[in-house]
Design a protein around this nucleic acid. Structure first.
Lengths: 193, 193
DNA sequence: AGTATATTATACTAATCAGTATAAATTAAA
DNA sequence: TTTAATTTATACTGATTAGTATAATATACT
């Protein structure tokens, strides 16, 4: 055995993730990918398979990072309600920050590929359901601590908040006035009581 | 002057709208378009300009149809709350009906093009804002009739419901269990009181 | 009927696409 | 140092892309 791989597979995958995240599957060319990944075409195929396999690998990495990101962001509030407020406001502020927003790679994929490719329908659905369970755990904390009403429909509330998160993320791509996002968040938080 | 156009421009545009709606901008080829529109390539360019201009024309037509569709669907309930329930449940049921769902052409465009093309950022934002004003009018009816609380933040509620509509529409592309959608709708409707 | 004009259909362009064959370069083991 | 194995880089493939030039066709007006 000889000649170790010259490039860092993890970093190359991160670069591919960013390209697909920003441009989507169709609009990302192999030239875009190899350029950003800093590797040649045959190296890409040897390490990651074809374009769609690379996309899937990149998306799977994204969903893992995204889930843990959501998890940690939900720890930032003193109360459950405040935690969700921080999470949603954070989405909005990221989008108004410098540069064009990429939104959420998983949501982008739900729109572009899920309707035409069952594999991505399943992968994206399962990620959203996983986010719902993360939300659910947080809400349970609030119910047990007495912050939230004992008759709270925990699962329904979690799923409702996932829909809010998706809707807000997509709406931000059209860069609405700040008040639009703030109002929507304010109303969504009234679901928590 | 001579030789009238052989094809119906309106029907050709409808066909183009369906293609772009289903596949998005990048994944729709001129062969797809001319085939579905039933016209030849030069006829398309003569009548609608290039691919992007055709896309924009198709999207503008869609937003008009969509707005009036939403308007009429909001008339179906006895109360304001019931009207919004019907609207949201209708979205869900359309997606579970036969065939793969296309979702909303405008939302698809928000995800695919708005972040990279200011024209579509504006066009899609304005459509969502227009939907919010339609919602607002409906909510005002409820406040005036006494169905809804007098201190209802009408604009915020309307914008919150737009976010719910977007989130639900996108989530349906991943075909979640029916209960997911139903729960989310149930929670969203608690914003109306 | 003849002519001018607009719309068709065919066929082409140059560029780009995803994917691969080939060969040079590199390195660990013998 | 030689050999074998693996990854590089270059260059190519055939297909497809958006867009257009050309020529045939059809029609309203003179």
């Amino acid at each position: 055995m000889v000649r170790q791989r010259e490039f860092d597979e993890g970093k190359a995958l991160d670069a591919a993730m960013r390209v697909f995240w920003e441009k989507g599957f169709e609009a990302s060319s192999l030239n875009d990918l190899t350029f950003e990944m800093g590797i040649q075409r045959p190296s890409l195929y040897a390490a990651f398979g074809d374009k769609k396999q690379l996309f899937e690998t990149a998306l799977r990495k994204y969903t893992q990072l995204h889930a843990s990101d959501i998890r940690s962001k939900l720890q930032k509030g003193k109360t459950v309600k405040e935690s969700f407020r921080f999470l949603l406001v954070g989405i909005v502020e990221e989008e108004y920050a410098i540069g064009p927003s990429k939104g959420c790679f998983c949501i982008n994929t739900m729109v572009e590929l899920a309707p035409h490719d069952e594999k991505f329908e399943i992968l994206t659905r399962e990620h959203q359901m996983y986010l719902a369970t993360i939300f659910q755990e947080k809400i349970e904390q609030g119910v047990h601590s007495g912050e939230l009403a004992g008759d709270t429909n925990i699962k329904a509330l979690a799923q409702g908040l996932v829909i809010t998160l998706i809707g807000l993320t997509v709406m931000m791509k059209a860069r609405p006035e700040r008040s639009f996002a703030d109002n929507a968040i304010q109303m969504a938080l009234t679901m928590i009581k």
